[in-house]
Structures are given as structure tokens and as C-alpha cells.
């Protein structure tokens, strides 16, 4: 089935099998392997992407359903020059990752959280990130990172 959608600002045309999930299409057709598949049944959150600005488990959505949608994956976070997003910088600085497998989903969930609530308290961060499972860090570093990134993102940008 022919579909067209936008990924990280780029238009993509694909011919996909209906049973292929959005995660499959992103990884195998678009080569965007940053979206990780952990459980493949909607529990772990590693494959979380934004679809039309809303977080979605890319393993619980068929690629055909993304026809016409705007998708943001972890590859869309860094600047064109490769400069890391403040969230990515904060995850590095605050030990928000160890093996890194859950990190793409964590970053996308955190991105959506900070877009909807620029000043979340730690309890809110824990609740909002509860759909993403990490087996390494014990979560404290992740909560620290999201809290720190929120502070950076609230600062007024450099005058241009």
C-alpha cells in the first residue's frame, strides 16, 4: 500500500505491507534505526515517536495509518549541524542513560512533556515518563536530566 508522510521534516513515499508497524517502516524503510523496538507490544516505550505532535508507540500503529502524518523521531532532535538538543545534552550530563536502549523513547516522551508543561515538578516527570521502562539507571538520572533540560529550555534564547 502506497503511503506518504513526513519524517523529521522530510517527505517520504513508501510502499508498505499493512501489517508493518510504523516502527518497522521507520527502521527498515527509512533507515531511522534510532527508534528502538523493545517489547513490540506497547509496554516498554522504547519506540515512542511523535505523530502529529502527540506521543505514540510506533509498534502499536501500522505504517499505513501514518499516511499524511507528520512524524518526529529521535533523529529529529539534534540540529542540522549535529548539535545535540538540550534534552540530549542533559541526559549525557546527568547520567540519564547507561546502555542507551530506552533513551530514544525517553527523549521523545520528555520532549512532549516539556512542550506541554515547561516547568514540571519531579513527581510530574516521574508520572509522565512512567510509560517508558529503563532497566539500567534506576530512573533518578533520567528525572534529573528532564528537570535540568526544562530549566535550559525555559531560558531565553541568545539574541540573534
Amino acid at each position: 500500500m502506497d503511503i506518504t508522510f513526513s519524517v523529521n521534516g522530510e517527505r517520504v513515499h513508501l510502499d508498505v505491507e499493512p501489517r508493518h508497524t510504523l516502527a518497522d517502516a521507520l527502521r527498515e524503510e527509512c533507515g531511522l534505526t534510532g527508534t528502538h523496538l523493545g517489547c513490540e507490544h506497547g509496554v516498554c516505550g522504547a519506540c515512542t515517536v511523535l505523530v502529529d505532535g502527540q506521543p505514540a508507540r510506533a509498534c502499536l500503529m501500522f505504517a499505513v495509518q501514518a499516511d499524511g502524518a507528520t512524524v518526529t523521531t529521535v533523529e529529529g532532535l539534534a540540529g542540522e549541524d549535529g548539535e545535540l538538543h538540550p534534552l540530549q545534552e542533559a541526559f549525557v550530563a546527568h547520567h540519564g542513560l547507561q546502555c542507551g536502549f530506552c533513551t530514544p523513547g525517553m527523549l521523545i516522551s520528555a520532549l512532549h512533556l516539556l512542550e506541554t508543561d515547561p516547568e514540571p515538578d519531579r513527581e510530574t516527570i516521574r508520572t509522565e515518563m512512567s510509560g517508558n521502562i529503563c532497566r539500567c539507571t534506576g530512573y533518578s538520572g533520567i528525572v534529573d536530566a528532564v528537570e535540568a533540560a526544562a530549566g535550559v529550555l525555559r531560558e531565553p534564547g541568545p539574541a540573534s
Binding site: G45, Q54, A56, L60, G131
Partner: peptide, 9 residues
């Protein structure tokens, strides 16, 4: 119900 990403869909 579930988590943010679940409630969104």
C-alpha cells in the same frame, strides 16, 4: 488509563 502515549491514541 495507561500512560501518556497510550491515552493519546
Amino acid at each position: 488509563i495507561g500512560h501518556t502515549a497510550i491515552r493519546a491514541r
